[in-house]
Design a protein around this nucleic acid. Structure first.
Lengths: 202, 202
DNA sequence: CTGAACTTTCAGAAATTACTGAAATTACCG
DNA sequence: CGGTAATTTCAGTAATTTCTGAAAGTTCAG
């Protein structure tokens, strides 16, 4: 590996972390190299910095492109592909969240929806189905919330995050000022804690 | 695998998904079996349902315990260990988020902090360090926000999620009502989009 | 103690995943 | 076209991870 010391530490760390994620070491390292590079790099630049095979880099870049985490560009009079990682960290975060949603959450939602349409053929399955319903409900709620939040500009989002839990106090404020002018009526909100117990299974 | 049809589909799916996550197929399946079970199960019950070795189940349960996703209980007059998955889906979500924070985010924050304390020995490293600073900033902000949000009760949290992006409008409302009575002064909020460009590297 | 019931550990086998170099393919230039 | 510079694919190998059965460990009743 051919990198200055700080960069090397960062790249090695991303290699390790990559594995805790859905990507392999090399993919993590390639992304790290691009993230801290001040200019776009060719695949051979990356080979040179990481000391892995050209084909490995090619595959890694392809995977990073499928995550929309790297961008491909070209230079006039140069046939090579140049790769770079978008700079805006908020945008990176958003992209990551979207891709994970697509890869991890959507298939699960879809499986749960299918299972909820079937009719249970045994008491065990009936109970299982009820548990799936609860999981489906949760995931759908979080998914919808996140889709909404994605519409906010980074500025507003940052303000909200800056407020942190104080947002909860805003909620009370709203109640006070607008006097419960919500779409849904204000009866006690159902929570998992207050859901009726499912009762013992078979 | 010895499970009724709906349960089996769910368990198989969790096995697949487990791999996209940081856990292996068996661990995912064990969790799934416990999640949809109406009562606590012994390790041998799980062996029976999944058709994997006893030792594999033992290791998987240990891992799930380290994630705080399963709970161990005992019954009077029975020496065996009984395992169950907590019922409350919100609590499960919270636990997952906390563990991932601990395993994926905290080590990265720590590495970044260390790197930011060093002094860069080359122009490349100086640029890399600046990029790391931006990443550190983002992660820290999101981490703090999440720590705040964790303090909210599930009820309030659900209300907030129900509001979705409408929360942003609350923000404007607050400005209007309270007239900018914030801790921090209200100059334009710095965003990644408006950060000064770092300029070309070396 | 002893032994039965249960759980954990661990070394090696099996399965999976990652990586490489060679060959095939693509893109472009003259 | 033919040639060259680049990228991609792929079959085989290397490395890693997962899984198992056997052995060791633990707990508790008698």
């Amino acid at each position: 590996m051919n990198l200055p010391p700080l960069s090397q530490a960062f790249v090695l760390h991303f290699g390790e972390m990559g594995s805790r994620w859905g990507v392999n070491r090399t993919v993590g390292q390639i992304y790290a190299v691009l993230y801290i590079s001040s200019q776009a790099l060719t695949a051979d630049d990356i080979v040179e910095r990481l000391g892995v095979s050209r084909s490995n880099v090619s595959m890694g870049l392809k995977e990073l492109q499928s995550w929309r985490l790297v961008r491909l560009e070209h230079r006039p009079g140069d046939r090579r592909d140049y790769f770079s990682a978008p700079e805006d960290v908020w945008q990176i975060f958003r992209t990551l969240a979207e891709e994970r949603q697509r890869r991890e959450v959507d298939p699960t939602l879809s499986m749960l929806r299918d299972a909820l349409l079937e009719s249970a053929g045994s008491p065990e399955d009936a109970y299982a189905q009820e548990r799936m319903r609860r999981m489906h409900e949760l995931i759908e709620q979080i998914t919808e919330w996140f889709a909404e939040v994605r519409k906010l500009s980074p500025e507003v989002l940052q303000s909200l995050m800056g407020l942190g839990a104080k947002v909860a106090r805003l909620l009370e404020l709203k109640e006070r000022v607008l006097g419960g002018g919500r779409k849904e009526p204000p009866p006690a909100i159902a929570t998992s804690d207050t859901d009726p117990p499912l009762g013992p299974g078979p």
